[in-house]
Structure formats: C-alpha cells, structure tokens
Design a protein around this nucleic acid. Structure first.
Lengths: 357, 357
DNA sequence: GCGGGGCATCGAATCGATTCGATCCGCGTC
DNA sequence: GACGCGGATCGAATCGATTCGATGCCCCGC
C-alpha cells in the first residue's frame, strides 16, 4: 500500500517474467494475446498504472521532454503573439510524438543553467532569445543535448529555423518608398535585454544580440540607406506607444512620414500614439509592422505588415528537434514571408505637397 | 568519444570511489576540499558536465518536472491574460526550486493521457481547465502523481487554489444595482469546451464544467435574481464582440443598460461592439468585466472590474505542488478579490429617465 | 522417428547515478 | 600504550524498467 507496485510485481502475479510483462505493456506483437490479458489483469488487480516513466527513460536514454528557452519571463514573452504562435506550433508537433514541452524562462538574474543540470531534456529549442553568449548553450552541448535555434545566430552543428527577415523588411521599405516616403524612421525591438530605450547609436548597434532585429534593420537600409532608429526595451504595445510619442511629438516638418516598426505589436503602439496626437493614419503618417499577428482589437484597422509563418516556424523547429533526438541531422531552413498591405500605409503627404507645387 | 563519460569514469580518473565523486558533485560538506578539486579536475578533463539528470531522477524518485494542464491548445489558452499571469506565477516559484514547468495542452481530440504515461511528472497543476471528468485525473492518481487544482471542483485529497468568484461578482453586481441598473445581461465564458454559443438555457447550465464560471453566474443572481445570460465559445475578445453585437443590436428599449462580462477580455469585446453600434459607454451602457487584466490597448478607457490576484494564484498553486512533492499536505486556499471601479460603469440611463419624469 | 523452423517466453546485463552503513585513519586523552 | 572519537572515504544495494540473445516447445515434413 505504502509503495507503488512495480512491473516485477505485476509479472510475478501474472506468472510471467518481467521481460514478458514489459513487452506486453509496450504492445509488442511478440507476446501472445492470452498472456497480454493475464498481465493486464494482474496490473489492474494491483493498481499498476503502467511502467514508471523515469525508469523507462533511464533505460531508453530519452526523457520525452523537450525544452523551449524563453529569454524573458513568461509574462513578457507571451505578450508577443509571435512567441505564442511559435510555442503553439512546437507544442503541436511535440504532442503528436507524445513528447512534453518544458518551458525554460530566463527569470531575472536566475540563469536557467541550474535547471538544466537537474532536468532531463532530450533536446532544447531556443525559441525567442538570442543564444550568442548564453551559458546554457555551452552546458547543453557538454551534456550532449541537441539544440535547435529559431532565428538565432549560426552555430556549429545547430540547425536553424529562420525566416527572411531582411527580404521581408526590404519589401516593406520598398512599398513605402514607392508611395513616396523619404522621411522614414524605425522603431526597433530590443537589441538586447538590458532595458535600453532610445536612439540606436552605432555603438549600441554593435551590441545587437538578436538576429531578426539586425536583419530587419538591414532590410530597411537596403532601400532607404541610413535611417534614424529608436530602440524599445521590450516588444510590447505600450513601449511602441512610448516610442511613437517621442518620434511623433515634434513639429510636423520634422516628423517622419512613415514609421517602420519591427513588430506588429510595436506598430500598434505607434498607432495609439498617433491617435493621441491627432495624427491621421495613413493620411498624415504611414505605420507598418512585421509579423502578421492577428491583433483582433485593432479592427477595423488593418496593419500593413509582413506576414511570417510563426506557427510553421514552431512546427519546423519541433520537427528538427525530434529528428535530432532520433539521431538525424536536420537541415537549417529559411521560411518565406509575404507583404500584406493594409489600411495603415498610404502616399507620403510630403510627396503630395511636392507634386502640388 | 562516442559515448559520454559517466560519474564512475570521473571517479576512477580522480582516484576516488563513485560515492565520493557523487558527494562532491552534490556539494556535500563531508568531502574534503582537496578531494573535491581533484574530482572536478577529472571531470573537466573528461568533459563531464555533471550527473545525468535521468539517472539521478530515477534514484531520487523525482524528475524535477511539474506539469501544468491547459484545457485548450496553447494558442487559445494564452489569449487569456489571466492564464498567462497564472503560468507566470507558477513558473516563478518552480524555477526558484530548480523545477521545470511542463505544458500539457489538451489538443483537439488528443487526450494528454498518452503523454502522461511517457513523461515523468512530480506533480500536476490543473491550471485553466475543469477536471471533473478528465481521464487524466484518474491516470495521475493511479500513478501516484499529486495534483493541485486551480479553481477546479473539489476533489478528494486535492488541494485547491481558489478565488472568491462569487463574492467578487456579487460586489460588481451590487455596484451596478446601486447605479440604478435593472436591465442587466451577462456574457459568460464557455461553460464547457464544445463550441457552444448563445443564450444559456437551464439545461445547458446543468452541463457547466467550470467552477469559476458557475460562481460568477451565481454572484450576479445573488443581487439581480435570474438574468439573461449569453455564452461564448471561447474567452476571447472577438467572441465578446460577437456576443455584444447580438445583445446590443436591438431596439433601445429592449437593450440592457448594463452588461456583465465574465472576463475582462470579453468585456473588451463588448466595448468594441458598443463602439461599432454607436452606443456610448458609460452614458448609454455600462460594461463590467472580471480579472483586472491589464489590457494596455484599451487605454485610456479603464474597465470597471474585479481584480483577482492571478499571479499569486499561480504562485500558491506551485507552492502547494512543491509541498505535495515533499510529502506535505497543503491546505486549500481561497484568495480575495477586490472591486475596481473604472470609467465603463455609470448611472443607468433608464433610471435617469425615470428620475426626470 | 528425427531434424528443423518459428513463435512465445525467459535470464541477465544494463542504464547512471544516490545513499546508508561500514571502514579506515589520525589524533587527543587518560 | 590503549581506547575512543570524529571526519573522510568506500562498498554495495537500489531505483524500475528495457532489450538482446538464448531457451524451450510444438508441429510439420521428410
């Protein structure tokens, strides 16, 4: 009573050897139906719920758990609809394999390294965080835990699931350029998670941690050349709004005619700031985002943005992880993105002016 | 090379017994500093990253993983800010214990039971789902995995973390009653996850799955008596909006003067519907919610709502889980909630009319 | 009647640590 | 000089399954 029955006990009760009992539970076709029944009956009598996952894991060398590394704490990371979609995609594939999804949130000051040491992981997916100088990477490698990176930096032997951040932003920028915009500014996601807010200096830029952020900066520059950029400390609506206020609350002639936000969430914040300041979108100002997140509450406004396959990114990452666990060597992949023109971008007001003159 | 070094190998190299090496890695004070150093040096030479968590888990009988059961798939569950806060609270406490948080999302048609059989869990927290007739409960019990329920039904030997849903809603209802509202309708969260949408019939109500939903219905009735209720199939903004359109798009004299939404998210949807229909809030209509979620994008509107300690709920649940793992028997607790009056509730327009006449 | 093939079952090694009680050694004390 | 004590280290059992190669057995065919 005090202690749970073991497979051996069940086997004894059923009058078979532990090996046969094990086979029976594994559903092996090698065991005779009658025997299988006897084993199950014995298990039922003893209240045995099936093989202990821990013991099975040790023997198999697999824990059935894949870890997803989230840079920030859950609460902030999940303000980001893309992160959610990503995780949802991961979860979908993993659960189809009966594998569990473990969340490793980088809590402030607490490196997740001590968790890694204690928790059995079959593979790790770096989901929404740069992994350049993350000590966890070293530790996982030493442990032999395979790693998959989502929009991380290239790492020896680490398959990467990427999207065409640069190309997508380039399309977006070109769209604005075609509309006559010349005074364009960028609101960036955090270059790294240290709470910095403000104009991006070259020095700051050199510290950029995240691959996607860098590529989205470059995509703009491919079209417009150097452009003022403003960094937010967190990819959240209110930070977008704060940035928007700074960039927009200036004399109209110095105001940008278009703002390229590096995410839809930030773009939504900029829209908010514009509304507060009585700036009409898209008449006075074009605002574009990135992600194609469904910001239901923005309706009926439709953001001009670059749609990325967030969920598919997650599924691909999970598939790669499973393949690594099986001993395979999955390829890095780059998923395509597509421009979606909404109601927040229009002809540049200054180009109108020039035309009229 | 092909195979990872074991503790035994490290011990051999350091010239000590496996037991001593184990003690050294565990940081036991019983091992002499010099010896410890020797062990660590040997480990470094061999590229040994520390004891294998799987083996350690088996021996200890603990996996260091706690599962959180999410009723829906991740994507939908996390539209709900309360679920997020809850998970964040859980994660906070667990990671302080170096314990991992595993997400078990009930994907459509795929009961998580097969995952449970394969994944080693130390405890399970039923986070955002009813567990009345969940087969997972039976399975976990058979396995001896302790369970904590958050706003679940009372279950023998399962500590429950609850909030005062009924009392909170009662305060909310009284607030509206005091403002003169008499024609009140309720927008409910799903009574169970089967996609049902529409007026709540007594028959339907008998099927109600979720404790919090039931209590929030009762709280309203404590003040207003029987009240028309309208069920949404999912706790999401657009569903709130859909419900709002149905309830509000009727001749003004049949329109409710106040709508009590069972969550802030639904309330936000109702606000959206009201705006679409040109109904002013709070002049023509009061809208109240529940949760105290920070819907940043609602600003500057401030929802009248009941603030619940979502994150604390998560922390409490995680603490209870840890206590269960340690063999303790944590108590069920009920956390307090508080009314927060915002800008979306005001005097009933019909009471104005009556007064004027 | 005997050899062989196939199917069901069994034995035993193994996965990699943890942990308790035992042992060993050096030193202080009477 | 013997005894006792305490700190450091070691031996060996144990956690609970999985799995491969071996064994036993039955039946068929020659």
């Amino acid at each position: 009573m005090s202690t749970r029955p073991t497979l051996a006990a069940v086997a004894a009760r059923a009058g078979v050897s532990p090996s046969t009992a094990s086979l029976a539970f594994a559903g092996s076709p090698k065991v005779a139906p009658a025997t299988r029944e006897r084993v199950f009956a014995a298990a039922a009598e003893l209240g045995y719920a099936g093989p202990d996952p821990l013991a099975a894991s040790l023997r198999r060398g697999r824990s059935g758990v894949v870890g997803a590394f989230i840079g920030e704490r859950l609460l902030y990371a999940f303000r980001d609809p893309v992160a959610l979609q990503l995780l949802d995609g991961i979860s979908e594939v993993l659960s189809a394999h009966d594998v569990g999804l473990l969340l490793l949130a980088g809590d402030v000051g607490r490196p997740s390294t001590s968790q890694i040491a204690r928790i059995p992981l079959d593979a790790a997916i770096f989901a929404t965080c740069g992994l350049e100088d993350d000590p966890a990477v070293e530790q996982l490698r030493a442990r032999g835990v395979p790693i998959v990176a989502v929009e991380g930096p290239e790492l020896e032997g680490v398959p990467m699931i990427d999207i065409d951040d640069r190309g997508g932003t380039r399309d977006l920028a070109r769209h604005l350029h075609d509309l006559g915009h010349r005074r364009v500014e960028v609101v960036t996601m955090p270059l790294r998670l240290d709470g910095t807010r403000g104009p991006v200096t070259p020095k700051r830029r050199a510290l950029a941690h995240y691959r996607d952020v860098r590529h989205r900066m470059e995509g703009v520059e491919d079209v417009f050349g150097p452009v003022p950029m403003y960094e937010t400390p967190s990819n959240a609506v209110h930070e977008g709004a704060a940035a928007g206020r700074v960039l927009l609350d200036v004399p109209a002639e110095r105001r940008p005619t278009a703002i390229i936000a590096q995410s839809d969430v930030l773009a939504a914040g900029v829209l908010q700031a514009a509304a507060e300041l009585g700036i009409r979108v898209p008449e006075d100002l074009s605002v574009v985002g990135f992600d194609g997140a469904d910001l239901h509450w923005l309706a009926p406004t439709q953001l001009t943005t670059v749609v990325q396959p967030s969920a598919e990114k997650g599924r691909a990452a999970a598939r790669a992880a499973m393949e690594l666990v099986e001993g395979g060597t999955p390829e890095s992949i780059v998923l395509p993105v597509s421009l979606r023109i909404g109601t927040t971008s229009g002809p540049s007001p200054s180009s109108d002016r020039t035309a009229r003159r």
